[in-house]
């Protein structure tokens, strides 16, 4: 029964989605929502969200909030970067694919890091092989490219490590 917290988290998230879709307080709708979200959560073993109750630990919860705000800040920066690039008469590009090492082990964390990197300034993730991540730069940083890439990946992975124990 080690999956029980994960199943309950998933069904709570699914129930939240159900409520924002129906926006109704009718008892029949709510009952149906509870039943359907429980069925889906049990059938998928809670794989959609994993165990969210660990976030109730204040340290991990704060780390998660910190990560979200850091990510949103980076996303805004990325868009300013794209914006300034696109409206130039000649688009300045210096593309390259650079390898970096992922210290984090959890598959879910790897996926979050890859998705975050895609949405942050000047970089998209091409592939992950084992614990190596391959990042495409639209404009390679001056200086040591590998060190810069590693620092960028670690800025996300380090913050995530605090959430995933």
């Amino acid at each position: 029964m080690s999956r029980t917290p994960a199943v309950i988290s998933t069904s709570i998230v699914l129930l939240g989605i159900w409520f924002s879709l129906t926006l109704s307080t009718d008892i029949q709708e709510i009952t149906l929502g509870v039943v359907v979200s429980l069925i889906v959560a049990i059938a998928t073993h809670g794989a959609l969200t994993g165990n969210l109750f660990t976030l109730l630990n204040p340290r991990k919860g704060l780390a998660a909030i910190n990560y979200v705000f850091y990510f949103l800040g980076q996303m805004v920066k990325a868009n300013i970067d794209v914006f300034l690039r696109i409206f130039r008469p000649v688009i300045p590009i210096k593309p390259g694919i650079v390898k970096a090492r992922l210290t984090i082990k959890s598959e879910r964390a790897k996926a979050i890091v890859a998705n975050s990197i895609t949405l942050t300034p000047g970089t998209i993730t091409i592939d992950i092989i084992g614990d190596e991540i391959f990042v495409h730069w639209v404009f390679l940083p001056s200086g040591d490219v590998h060190a810069e890439t590693q620092a960028m990946v670690d800025s996300f992975a380090g913050r995530l490590e605090k959430i995933f124990e």
Partner: peptide
């Protein structure tokens, strides 16, 4: 046009 390609 890739200047560096570690994935290769």
């Amino acid at each position: 046009n890739l200047l560096i390609d570690d994935l290769e």
